[in-house]
């Protein structure tokens, strides 16, 4: 199961990198969103997938699931949510001001 997830992480990263390398701002933002999903899955699979029961003391099971990666992912999801929201607004404002969503046109000129 872990190897399947790792392959999925690879596929997601490939898709994301393809999107990030394009010139359209919205595609880049979608790319970064997929990129963060990929790394969340990676963290999850690093803790081992479904090896035991819920990590509660009363369960009296032999093996417990590692709860730490889930806590990490939760934090990372919140952060990437905030950053994605910010960059979407930023892209919209930049589109209003600069009149383009093409990154190639945003290089900036020397005479300003």
């Amino acid at each position: 199961m872990e190897s399947l997830i790792i392959i999925l992480v690879g596929v997601l990263t490939t898709v994301a990198i393809y999107l990030v390398l394009s010139k359209n701002v919205v595609r880049v933002i979608l790319g970064t969103a997929i990129l963060s999903h990929a790394v969340h899955l990676l963290i999850l699979s690093m803790g081992g997938l479904k090896v035991g029961t819920v990590p509660l003391l009363g369960e009296e099971a032999e093996v417990y699931v590692d709860a730490l990666p889930q806590a990490l992912i939760l934090t990372a999801i919140v952060i990437s949510f905030a950053v994605t929201a910010f960059i979407l607004v930023l892209a919209y404002r930049a589109y209003q001001e600069l009149g383009t969503d093409n990154l190639g046109a945003m290089r900036g000129s020397d005479d300003e």
Binding site: V28, T32, L35, F86, I87, L90, R93, A94, E97, G108
Partner: peptide, 18 residues
């Protein structure tokens, strides 16, 4: 200019956080 540079700065930092 700030908006233009901010898009680059934010994107590069998202990738480095990744």
């Amino acid at each position: 200019r700030q908006l233009r540079e901010a898009i680059k700065y934010v994107s590069i930092n998202i990738v480095s956080s990744w």
